[in-house]
């Protein structure tokens, strides 16, 4: 465990809690893509099946359970408790365009052809694109609430910190997880455009709105 990894995990957790608090306090989930949140719940579900087969550390187990709970609670808030405020008309990204190629790829490129390992690979590939419905929604409506942009910032920061973690682990432990690294780079690239808008607009006190 290095400082980049722990900061990455904290940043990931902070992003999820921020989103939950935003929805809970405003009793409103307008502007949040329910599809992205379903994808994240699917990511954690397929990745953390090893909770039952493999013990890494108490930290690892506790964080996995918290991530799962947060993901499902968020989905429940959007499609259950506050569904009247859910802006489904702007959440129109076609999930099959992501799920079909990613399912195919996880069968083709994996570390071993076993059900758990294919599901793990699927979750890694899926996480790298899971934010696309959210970014698509923002580009469609042309704006995002400031708190939503903070959520996206911490989610992107988590990915960037994991890249630093992998560089660190490569040099100190000779650890190199090719599938995770390639997907992580792809995922981080998706946030670059958003990072630019975040720094040039949101941090200067302006609302994020697209021209």
């Amino acid at each position: 465990m290095n400082v980049f990894r722990i900061l990455g995990d904290v940043s990931h957790l902070l992003a999820m809690i921020l989103l939950l608090l935003k929805i809970w306090r405003s009793k409103c989930c307008t502007g949040i893509s329910g599809k992205s949140q379903i994808l994240f719940a699917l990511v954690f579900t397929t990745r953390y099946l090893d909770l039952f087969t493999n013990f890494v550390s108490l930290y690892n187990t506790v964080m996995k359970v918290i991530f799962l709970l947060c993901a499902y609670l968020t989905v429940y808030m959007i499609y259950g408790k506050f569904r009247k405020t859910f802006d489904s008309e702007n959440d129109t990204f076609r999930l099959e365009f992501l799920l079909v190629p990613i399912t195919g790829l996880s069968f083709l490129e994996n570390y071993s052809f076993t059900p758990l390992e294919i599901l793990w690979t699927f979750s890694i590939y899926l996480e790298s694109v899971a934010i696309l419905p959210q970014l698509f929604m923002i580009s469609k409506t042309g704006e995002a609430e400031t708190i939503t942009t903070h959520y996206l910032f911490f989610l992107g920061l988590y990915r960037a910190l994991y890249l630093a973690n992998w560089i660190w682990r490569y040099h100190t432990e000779n650890f190199y997880d090719q599938i995770a690294v390639v997907s992580g780079v792809v995922q981080t690239i998706f946030y670059c455009d958003f990072f630019y808008l975040y720094v040039t607009k949101v941090l200067k006190g302006k609302k994020l709105s697209l021209p």
Binding site: R5, D9, H12, R47, D50, T53, N54, V56, N60, M63, K64, F67, E109, N110, Y111, S112, E117, W120, Y162, N165, F175, Y176, D177, Q178, I179, A180
Partner: peptide, 10 residues
Amino acid sequence: LVAKTPHDEL
């Protein structure tokens, strides 16, 4: 590809 199981990251 090198196997990296069990996975120790989140």
